[in-house]
Design a protein around this nucleic acid. Structure first.
Lengths: 290, 290
DNA sequence: AATGATATCTGACCTAAGTCAGATATCATG
DNA sequence: CATGATATCTGACTTAGGTCAGATATCATT
């Protein structure tokens, strides 16, 4: 009755009957599913035909026919790529944009209808995030980004919120040593964000000083994505970036209330050292030679 | 970035690409998906052809052809229904059973592969249960069952485990007044379990005494299913059953640590009364006239 | 036994989707 | 500029899935 495999299969059944229905609802606008998918992919910014074909896993002949039928409907125009006239670029016409918007409205309505029926939205969304992260695990990308950009700021906000929940004395970023963004960007350092289909799931900063010693800062993994090995992937990315910057020694500070992080450091070659700063929040300090 | 609708749609995308792949993996055994679905439905115990057609939402002509092709492959036999020779009954042959088992093995392997890749299995399963319960909300059935049977015993076990977590003094069923199973079965009372595609998600007992007063006992809703209105549905079922048994007054005891339950009682016509038993765990008592 | 209802089957037909072998135009390179 | 590689297109074909109008056998009822 509680067989984990049975629970996963029950989930699969629930989801195929519900989300499958969602898929075919793209019908009902008088267009086969294949053409609707192409229209949507173009609307979401994919314009290169080869890219579209790859993304939708379509045969080139089939892709070509879908484009033709969308052109005949007056929803799409194609023109040769300016750099390479063999390739083609697809664009929505004004009518195509309207049709795309109609699909978007439909999808959004379906999504909010499903949300509206639960009185515990946030818990349900968290569960959906967790399942989506686990299913899409192989598609989680690590991007090097500007620590002042949107995805990074979102992660940092979540990180601070979590610290203030988990540290016994709370957390106020103004009292902590907030690293200068420029120290976490090339050429001094780096900042990485883990993105799953657009949703930021984790981050880490490499704060350089121009010298041979750098610090790891702001390692955070979204609760929905824990257990997927993301912390380790982020740390690996930061270490690789450090090596490229010829950094010889990495340091970090952390708090003993953050058990998973401490566990990660202890199992990946870090050794505990004495306090090396006067930040009021950390009580544990680590170092690793590269 | 944190738009709830966007999060739901991201979930849908993650799930269609993953679970869609799962669906088409039924191919690869050299049989079109439709026929494979029929074979699987038969293997899962559906034998009546009309029932199969209904369950799989197939046209009668198509269904007939799928059955013919499975018969030609030697996987299925059909025979007229003993009570009505117009209807037909489908059965797996030994070869059909082997083929069905192969599909089952494949599905189970895929499910456990997905589980094996997360190091937080229980959290992931809980999230999947929650999503499945929310998606399948309309398909949650309330069944009147024997309180000594498997689904009821599972719910009661979860209920006791939750009490021992949530009550300040813990919970030991031996110290509580455990109702006699016969008091929660016809003709004295009733016991209901909420089932979502086979998984028990909640329960409630109506404990009768043969007289005009009965008690509500063991109201429990699985954490994964909270917020779907299941508690209210279970209480309604118990009240309806009580009315059929000509019970005039319902009572119940609860603990003030169980806030959602208390909230439910207060908003559905129950009034607080004085203690009416000497059970050590409850500290709140309610009554409702029917 | 006749009549209408019901369950399944058969044949004819249709659409969506996908495959594959060239055809055509363009590009990169020596 | 000749050559092979590349991107897209076209036409011919296949398969899966589905619809629909009867045909056939059986049932329930009078």
């Amino acid at each position: 009755m509680l067989d984990p495999v049975a629970r996963v299969r029950r989930f699969n059944r629930a989801v195929t009957s519900e989300v499958g229905a969602l898929d075919t609802s793209f019908l009902g606008r008088g267009r086969p599913l294949g053409a609707a998918r192409v229209l949507n992919a173009i609307g979401h910014g994919r314009s290169d035909v080869a890219d579209l074909r790859d993304y939708l896993a379509l045969d080139s002949g089939l892709m070509s026919r879908f484009l033709r039928s969308l052109e005949e409907e007056g929803l799409v125009t194609t023109k040769p790529h300016p750099d390479d006239a063999r390739r083609r670029i697809a664009r929505l016409t004004a009518a195509g944009r309207r049709e795309f918007d109609a699909y978007e409205t439909l999808s959004n309505a379906q999504a909010s209808a499903m949300l509206a029926r639960s009185s515990r939205r946030e818990a349900l969304l968290a569960a959906m995030d967790m399942v989506a992260a686990a299913l899409g695990r192989d598609r989680i990308r690590l991007d090097e980004v500007d620590p002042r950009g949107d995805p990074a700021r979102y992660c940092l906000g979540e990180y601070y919120a979590e610290l203030s929940r988990r540290l016994a004395r709370g957390f106020d970023v103004a009292l902590s040593r907030d690293p200068d963004a420029l120290d976490m960007m090339a050429p001094r350092g780096a900042f990485f964000v883990a993105l799953s289909d657009g949703l930021p799931l984790g981050c880490v900063g490499l704060k350089g000083s121009g010298g041979a010693i750098a610090e790891i800062k702001r390692l955070w993994v979204a609760p929905a994505a824990r257990g997927l090995g993301l912390g380790r992937r982020l740390m690996d990315a930061a270490e690789t970036a450090a090596r490229k910057l010829s950094i010889a020694t990495l340091r970090l500070d952390t708090n003993s209330a953050l058990g998973e992080a401490q566990q990660l450091y202890r199992t990946t070659g870090w050794t505990e050292i004495d306090r090396f700063n006067d930040d009021p929040y950390p009580d544990l300090f680590f170092e690793k030679d590269l």
